[in-house]
Amino acid sequence: MHQSILDFERRRYLKIALALCGVSLVAYLWHDPRSPPNGGTWLGYTLGGLGAALILWLTALGVRKRSYTSTLGSLQGWVSAHVYLGLALLLVASLHAGFQFGWNIHTLCYVLMVVVIASGLLGIVLYQRLPQQLSQNRAQQTSDQMLTELQELDERTRRVAANASPDEVLAIEANIAGTRIGGSTVAILSAQDRSTVRLPDGPAEAEANPGQARILEWLSARLSASDDAGRTRTLTDLVSLIGARRALLRRLQQDARLRGWLSIWLYVHVPVTFGLLGSLIAHVVSVFLYW
């Protein structure tokens, strides 16, 4: 009963887009102008007008998305059409240009359009594959709930550490303080763990602690050197708590990564669209000025 945007209404918009591409291609092949095919022939103007209209309508999705009381189709239908007609635009614009490119405003417009379409294509691929992973990774918790669980885990770890020596207490505090989830764009998108820890008997600068590896190493060393039963028990508990922490951090980082990817393509898609609109206006105005 749930339909994805690609399957919407039995791929109605795929069929429309294919029809559009088909008609444009046939017209282009049949058309035999005196000069090489370009945007100035009657077919060129037709395809250009069509392309410009398409660009404007595609941009209008941003407005439709926020018109919550609108009953002009459903948003899902608009998005489905946006995807397929956006892809068809690539062919329409290329045929309009007659594949003539140079170092000018017209080609800039074309290039920006290609960037927008490419980022959109990336978006589709991400939307098809990532939500499932996001859901599985979440395992029924929201990201806020995962963070709360991390806090509670940290509290428990602190209490257990209180039964160990002051060095362990300091190390645990440093571990918690040095935790990083996400960070820079690259760190988020690659789920890189940039956590650090400044151990009490270690160097002055904090050491790298990806996946809690350094603190685990340190704790295990002290565990194997322990000869007191009580202390051994405490350290064993700490090790298993840190193990649980590691798994949770991994999930949080993965969650941030997936959400990052799900939104980053839009940071290209939308701003470049406005660049495209600007260059489109420049392109159309200059064409008619230099008629």
Binding site: S4, L75, Q76, V79
Partner: peptide, 27 residues
């Protein structure tokens, strides 16, 4: 509102759907 539940209409990917229990089995 005309058009029915806004949440369903505003979902861009079609993830949100309102179902009545009579349709559960079909769903």
């Amino acid at each position: 509102q005309s058009g029915g539940p806004a949440c369903v209409r505003a979902c861009p990917t079609g993830a949100a759907l309102r179902v009545s229990p009579a349709e559960f089995v079909e769903f």
